[in-house]
Structure formats: structure tokens, C-alpha cells
Amino acid sequence: MTHVLILAGGLSHERDVSLRSGRRVADVLAKVDVEAHVADADGSLLERLAQTEPDVVWPVLHGASGEDGAIRDVLGSLGFRYVGSTPESCRLTWDKPVAKTLVQRAGVRTPRGVALPHDTFRELGAGAVLDAISSSLTLPLVVKPARGGSALGLSVVHNAAQLPAAMVDAYAYGDIALLESFVEGTEVAVTVLEGEEGAPVALPAVEIVPDGGVYTYAARYTAGETEFFTPARLADEVSRAVAHAAITAYRALGHRHLSRIDLIVDPAGVPWFLEGNVAPGMTETSLVPMAVAASGREAGAVYHQLLTRALVDSER
């Protein structure tokens, strides 16, 4: 393998995080003698692809530009191999209500929720809709955009008076809001990798304890805002249940090579699926590098293995 092109940046709200992720991946690959260059997903990308003809493309684009499958559709149509899930898998995962349904059908619990388009919210009357939701979903609630990442637009609603503002925040990042029952428990993130033979392997879960109680955008990307425990402080049997739930979700959503599965473990030790991430953050404060380190693996060796998987895999 002589040339890897890392796609980072884009035009989403998560552009800065994506750029940090791209630089971090390139730095790690350089340590294992892999030539990697970072390119933005802009109007010059197709020309650059044609000129450089990279062996593998690694999209670390966050938000719609990198997680809705569109960029990967283009890469596939041009014949480029790339790290990560297929376009179909990306689309299923990007739509959180759809992902919840698929994972629940596979046997993993997920919080009860309602997906509410902005048009419906407006046409039926905000007050009447919020009253109906408040009566059917028990407070507290989690309100977030149905498509998006990095907790942008996410709020935890403890009383009905907070709900209108939470809806406004969610709609600022998309035209569909997802309202879910809040599950009390331990928040964990599980990185799932494909091993040399292609079977998914769950790395040690990372336990997330944000200072403010909610894992917001600032808590994710500001050093010192959140405390992490790797591996998570879970009983052995609960850790096994978490790993099983993560791999089940990975397979249900058709993920490939690498993804991160976010879960809540309730007081009874039962894992609940929150969402999947086909392009997880790879920055110095991101969860995937933490999980890799906790597993005893070297990041460079893991990333090199992912590139190898991309080289030998055809789309599936």
C-alpha cells in the first residue's frame, strides 16, 4: 500500500472535529510508515482522486457529508476502495429511528421514542403535539435531531416547560426531532472492529461520566469536561452483555471494518442501544483511540489492519 487519502472536513457542523480526526489518523499511520494525506471533501476532491489514485480512501467525515452514505456511493462508483461501512449501511445508521427499529428487531433494547418532523409539529399545533407527547412518554426525555452526531442539538428534558426549547434546539440541526424516554444508567461506548478473518470484535467498553451529567458537544471535545473509564466499571457478566449487544447492533446495521455503538446500561445490567456511528471521532479525546489503547493494541497496527481489510474486501 503506497498511498492513503484521508477525507476530513466537509461542510457539516462537525467540520472542525472531522479535521482533527483526519490529522490524528494521518499522524498514527505515519508512525507505521504508511503515506497518508488529508484532503477536504470539497469541489477539488474528484480531481485530486483522479490525479493521485490512492490505494485506499479513509473517510473520517462527520455529519451528513460523511455518514449518510453519499460520499461512499461516489467512491464506490469511481472504483475506489475505502475504509468503513457501505452506503446502504450508512443510510440505515444515519437515520436514528430506522437504526433503533433494526437493532430492536435484532433483540437489543432501545428507549421508547417518537420521531417528529417539523412540518407535522407545526401543522398539528406545537402545544397540542407537546401535550400528547408528554402524556405518552414519561419524563425525563432526551430530545435530539433524528440525523446528526456529536450530541449537537441534544437536550435532556426534566419538565414539560423545558420541552419547547429542546424542540427548537433539535430542529436547528435537522427537520426531524427524535424524542426518547430517558434511561437512567451508565453510558458506555463500544468500538467494534473487524478482525483479520472479518469477524467483528468488541473492544473494551469506555464508560462516560460527563461533569454536567449530559454528554454534550462541549463535553465530548473539551479536555477535562468528561471523565472516562476504560474498561468501563461493569461486572464481568454485564461487560459480556454489553459486548454482545454492540456486536448484535453492528451486524443488524450492516456495519463494516469499524464503528462505534453507544449504549446505556440500566441498574439491572441491561444494555440499551442509543445509536451507531459509522464514522466515529478519532481525535485525541475521542472514544475509539481510548478503546484501542485499553485493549492492549497499538493504534498504528489497528489502523493498518483496517486499511488491509479495505484493500481485500469488496462491497458487501
Results as ranks from 00 to 15, higher is better:
224 G>E: 07
112 R>V: 01
83 V>L: 14
144 K>N: 00
235 A>E: 09
84 G>F: 02
170 A>M: 11
24 R>A: 15
241 A>C: 02
8 A>T: 14
106 A>Y: 10
288 V>N: 10
180 E>L: 00
96 K>C: 10
158 H>D: 09
76 G>Y: 10
34 V>T: 07
208 I>D: 06
117 P>S: 01
152 L>N: 04
289 P>I: 14
142 V>T: 04
147 R>Q: 10
184 E>R: 01
150 S>I: 02
161 A>N: 06
133 I>T: 02
275 E>L: 15
75 L>G: 13
296 G>K: 15
160 A>R: 07
37 H>A: 15
175 D>W: 03
309 R>E: 13
250 Y>C: 13
217 Y>E: 14
164 P>S: 07
230 T>N: 03
133 I>A: 05
247 I>Y: 14
55 D>E: 14
77 S>W: 00
232 A>M: 00
117 P>N: 00
138 T>G: 11
193 L>F: 02
260 R>Y: 07
261 I>M: 13
99 A>S: 14
297 R>P: 11
224 G>L: 09
285 T>S: 06
286 S>A: 03
28 V>S: 12
290 M>E: 04
53 E>Q: 15
302 V>F: 11
154 L>N: 05
242 V>I: 15
77 S>E: 06
238 V>H: 07
219 A>D: 03
188 V>S: 04
33 D>H: 13
273 F>G: 04
277 N>F: 12
161 A>V: 05
55 D>I: 09
301 A>I: 05
274 L>C: 14
99 A>P: 05
93 T>L: 07
60 V>D: 04
208 I>M: 04
83 V>E: 13
38 V>K: 04
62 H>F: 10
189 A>I: 00
83 V>H: 15
28 V>M: 01
63 G>Q: 02
197 E>W: 01
147 R>I: 00
4 V>L: 06
267 P>V: 07
130 L>A: 08
14 E>L: 01
147 R>W: 07
123 E>P: 05
19 L>T: 14
38 V>C: 08
155 S>E: 06
